[in-house]
Design a protein around this nucleic acid. Sequence first.
RNA 1: GCCCGGGUGGCGGAAUUGGUAGACGCGCUGGAUUCAAAAUCCAGUUCUGGCAACAGAGUGCGGGUUCGAUUCCCGCCCCGGGUACCA
Length: 883
Amino acid sequence: MEYNFSEIEPRWQRYWEINKTFKTTDNFSKPKYYILDMFPYPSGAGLHVGHPEGYTATDIVSRYKRMKGYNVLHPMGYDAFGLPAEQYAMQTGTHPAVTTNKNCDNFRRQIKSIGLSYDWDREINTTDPHYYKWTQWIFKQLYNTWFDETINKGRPVSELTIPDEIKSQGKDAVKQYIAGKRLAYYDNAQVWWCDSCKTVCANEEVLTDGSHEKCGHTVTRKNLKQWLLRIPLYAERLLQGLEELDWPAGIIDMQKNWIGKSTGAEIDFSIEGLDKKLKVYTTRPDTLFGATYMVISPEHGMAGEITIPEKKKEVEKYIQKASLKSDLDRTDLAKEKTGVFTGRYAVNPVNNKLIPIWIADYVLMGYGTGAIMAVPAHDTRDFEFAQEFDLPVICILDPKDADGREEILKGLKCWTEDGEYINSSSMETGLDINGLNKLNGIQKTIEWLESNNLGKATVNYKMRDWLFSRQRYWGEPFPVIHWEDGEVTLLDDDELPLLLPDLEKYTPGEAGESPLANASEWLHVIDKNGRRGRRETNTMPQWAGSCWYYLRYIDPFNEQMILNPDKEKYWMPVDLYIGGAEHAVLHLLYSRFWHKVLYDLGIVSTDEPFKKLFNQGMILAYAYETATGAKVTSDLVEEHEGRHFHTKTGEELKQIVAKMSKSLKNVVNPDDIIERYGADSLRLYEMFMGPLDERKPWSETGVKGVFNFLNRVFRFFGDTGNINLEKESTEVAKTLHQTIKKVGSDIENLKFNTAISALMVLNNTAMKQGTVSKDTAETFAKLLSPFAPHLGEELWSVYGHNKTISYEPWPEADESLLQEDSFEYPVSFNGKMRFKIELPLDMELEDIKKTVLSDQRAEKWLAGKSLRKFIFVPKKIINIAVN
RNA sequence: GCCCGGGUGGCGGAAUUGGUAGACGCGCUGGAUUCAAAAUCCAGUUCUGGCAACAGAGUGCGGGUUCGAUUCCCGCCCCGGGUACCA
């Protein structure tokens, strides 16, 4: 009988759909398992083979967990706001909702054709007003929350105590005070602007080379009034929370890095001739004695007053140049140090020495206090600057036995490591750290600073406020009105959702405003007192909808509340979350932030949303190039005997691995694979290629390999003529139970490639045996079904069952069958395996020694040598060391 | 520069974390079946030498620890990702 996948697969997909096989109920008595995929942006191009990789992995775990008796929540939806649909609308006038719905339909069709066991009744779409109503509602919560640093927790602004001195200044002062505390605020900000997308973007969206991660165009700086979220207030919580997560170490590192915690001290320097202090932040207060100059950033607020009149012109010129420089490609210019002397001096608090104050753009306004004390002897950047401008270098840290100590002591070389302090005491001020090491030096200096009121220990974070508005049409509108008198109000809950208005045209409004500025009817509002107002024209970034979608799956149709608390308590947290590593800092950090705010407000019961995270690796493709490195599109390549040639020139080509791309013509479409080999083959191949988290190249012959395996399975296990044994043979029984054990533990560890290989071994063993018992066949079908569910169901029905295999109990391995009473020991001489010998497990060591050493095959390795050591490791190895 | 990954046959990849290196699959070689091909089945397949039994070498490179190292330690090289004047 033929393995007719194109008949089998749609038939089971219909069965699942009609019977709602994978509908999840809120049966709180069962143990739950929430398994989530990062939902896709439904692009017009449809699914690529990368999507089914993660989806199949989660599907296997879902099906396995169901068979293990769990109540499984496994939903799917669409992150459907986004630029492409809007750009298409600009060109064609088609409403983005139309494009989006069409693309979602296509995605749904494609996803269903893979046989994934989602509960389709919970499908969500971020562009659905029923959904974004709650995105807007969360924005309101952020707006109405402040962060209480004394208890490290977000609280409603209604619980914010207003200091009396603010109260006494009147209503506006109070409003301003509250605005300064809200997690969401509207303010003038230096923002990154992408001129290609005609929108601002968050720091996180700008790549290292200064390009926009969405479109690749270089971004520029702009000053605009925008919505921002005070995510740094949660920096410590976001950092601490990482400790308890079962996430890839790399992602944890990246998040830690992004948060960028550093500890040090803020130190006040008095300024000669000015009744003001200059505050610096440093991680090395211990090096104060080596501070030979100071630097403030060109944007520093005190630049003007610090600069002496004679230097004004020069300084202004430098500041002007620096401001232009931020518009250029900064990375190229970054290396060379530039700066200008202000003419003014500060007083070093540890020894009262005067040190010059410079302005230089290597000091950034956005970090610390925007001012530093420069210690050229022990900081590479300061050292470079000192060399450039011939400033003194005083070594205060003896590197002891390090290379180049002499040069370091003379200040000719920079030393950033530990050592022993020298030149670090002052009779005048009473501080002396000579002889101490770095750790103690830092501690003692901070104590001295604090007791003399000159500074204090401080913690700093790299993470900045999150720029939360975009000049786009196709996003969630802010439920915000700006009134003519300057007041900003939010809509009431019963006014949500604030719907996106339909537009005639989707081009941006005046002066880079969002297209919503064109929606005049929608835009202008009048309150009951006749006051005029204008709605916020910016929309939320795409991250907004994906920040909390995992919560809505739990209760997708609740119109009264974001989700029911009982359901939330049952289903949260997400037990397993699989998606691409490209979201390491963006989506995963933003989500965690929102979640923590919702937790503080009592809306969710867990502090972290995603317990276990796993990243699937990218699927690459083979590409071809000539000897000179010129790429050849895949349609011009032919293969003979494992070598590759150009179809036109006959030239031999080199096979390389590259990202799938249209230009190389090596993009694989899952639809084609399903048509030729079936969904089960697609699933199986994607899992068999290699470890889930590694990047790996697609190979069509590899698909044929697993297709071949499924054919063999169908021919053997699908033929009841082969299933006639009363009692299973020992060999097959043993392999079967080994396979049960291995497949189960491999699924738990997401090692699908080796699980499939174990199934192949079992199939090979069974086929060799020629006939198996019904129990073996049914067990095999169960083990196979999470991986190849259509074939699993088909076999199950061939065995006479009329109900789905999806909820059949997962087989248990019979350990007694795996017990051995003997073991075939490899015998090595000096670590090199020479022969094998079967020995009973209960044999005494002395007998083993005698048996092995007297074995005929041992003779030649012992001849003329003396026995040094006899190593016996039970059930492992015998090694004989000879001289 | 710094922080993570990763280098194993012709290819994708296994190896219970110190114990038989190369499971499983692809490809290739030979054979069976066939008028022939496809499909299928059987056998072989790390490299070198040998008809073979067998021997030697072998997990990026160089050292080390150990009875024994793909696995642990030290020093390098290459590839991929992240990040970058963060004081």
